[in-house]
Design a binder for these strands. Sequence first.
DNA 1: CCGCTGTGATACCCACCGGGTATTACGCTG
DNA 2: CAGCGTAATACCCGGTGGGTATCACAGCGG
Lengths: 280, 280
Amino acid sequence: MDDLETRELRYFTAVAETLHFGRAAERLGIAQPPLSRAIAQLERRLGVQLLDRNRRGVALTEAGRVLLRESRLALAAVAAAARRTRRAGDSQLVLVTKAGASHALLQRLLNAPAAPPVEILLCEVGEQAGLLRDGSADVAIMHHPYDDLAGFDTEELQVEGQVAILPAAHPLAAREALTLAEVSDVPDLPIARWPRLDGSYPDGPGPEVRTQSKLAQLVALGRTLLVIPASSRAWQWPEHVAVPVFDAPAVTTMLAWPSTSRSPKVAAFVRAAVTLRAAA
Amino acid sequence: MDDLETRELRYFTAVAETLHFGRAAERLGIAQPPLSRAIAQLERRLGVQLLDRNRRGVALTEAGRVLLRESRLALAAVAAAARRTRRAGDSQLVLVTKAGASHALLQRLLNAPAAPPVEILLCEVGEQAGLLRDGSADVAIMHHPYDDLAGFDTEELQVEGQVAILPAAHPLAAREALTLAEVSDVPDLPIARWPRLDGSYPDGPGPEVRTQSKLAQLVALGRTLLVIPASSRAWQWPEHVAVPVFDAPAVTTMLAWPSTSRSPKVAAFVRAAVTLRAAA
DNA sequence: CCGCTGTGATACCCACCGGGTATTACGCTG
DNA sequence: CAGCGTAATACCCGGTGGGTATCACAGCGG
């Protein structure tokens, strides 16, 4: 059985993501004909049709969709192998967290007596899983139920309520507390839309956002509101007001790491975090 | 940044597992010099020394050990991509289970009204995780705490006590019940030793076993005993006697599947299994 | 209806590199 | 010091991955 090469997977993901041989080739830095040939060869070797090339364009078949999913995971695993090997000697551990989340908690973690040296990597919402999977980070701070924890081992750090972040000028900003029903259906403050994993946006009235800073800007301008864990209030501006949302589901801040990890660095850090939590 | 190719990972794992360039090359079906060259090139590209080639033989460095672990995972992910793509169209689902475990439960699962068509794959103890990871199977029956469930989503199927399997001729076989202390330290019936993930055996007085059938044989011959979940009694022979072990930890039979799975086949099967459990 | 445009497939060539054989270098051991 | 077992080096060759040029074809506008 001839195994696939990562080159083939990279080529296929490029085509599958762009649905265009020419642009995919450009992205890969090769010419279009070799790419066509490589994909055709891949289909022959797998014995499955991956793409429908009919009138005006390319579409994924069912098998193609499966391979796209699996290719991303496999390529992340290969990249992880390289990164983790390069960093094998480092005593330093890389922790990734969403920009602006859980400042105080993180501070306590880093100052814990038993904690090993830690390098902090900041990312945007929803990017932690990918960075853990591809070996860019050893451990992440994630939030249940916001983040997808599939494939990770976790340790609970804290549980907290959520607050609504509103423009200071808005009538609702004066309230002592709010309910989910009140904030989820404010006509002049539609909830912002985050990109899905594939980069596309769900439908809806709210503005499209991709980064926290852009979101903060939009709130300050009175264009949207959001509901976030209380500890994430760190990044609010003078133009923002935070109001507790009574019936919002509790958010659990968790330490997460690949369940396949056997790294002593990670184990030591998690142990330090757990004893810290016990002491608190 | 130049990515690694699966060929390089295959080559490295071969060398790392044999610790011998010549034999590794033979296993790979290539000559020794190109293999040496490929490994040297890999070390150059990663910028890390993977092997110590000093006096009389090869040893893994710390980085080498990391890469060996990661390579196995990455290669399994690539193989999984190929297998799952080939089987994308199949409506049939592949379920893997240890030979001889939980007959009755499995029977009920397969006969469940909502269950999709299922192909059964039998494997030896501890092999389920690998078969799930490399895409040979979609879902597995595993036993907590015996099996390593890292990286899998699970659904509990049943909880049960454990029994000791003894040679019928042994004095302990006449007892109504036993304790862990009694069975864990019987001088003439040392507990058998299973291979670790890397194929080596732990130290100890018991015989080395690799397959269930060999183990059954050894018990029948009066050379060892074992403690297993009550539902696994299916494979006992006339020469075997099962005696409940009161204080042995309870064993949970679980349905497990890769937490990255998004397959509707798997989802349907799990749903069927859960409703079945609820009905029982 | 015809050419234009934008697309992927084909044809063909070249150069690189992965793999082979032969040999060397080196360390241990008798 | 000779002999063996090992990995590294030297060198050559062929396959294949990549390039350019071109084709085939479908939609579409004039």
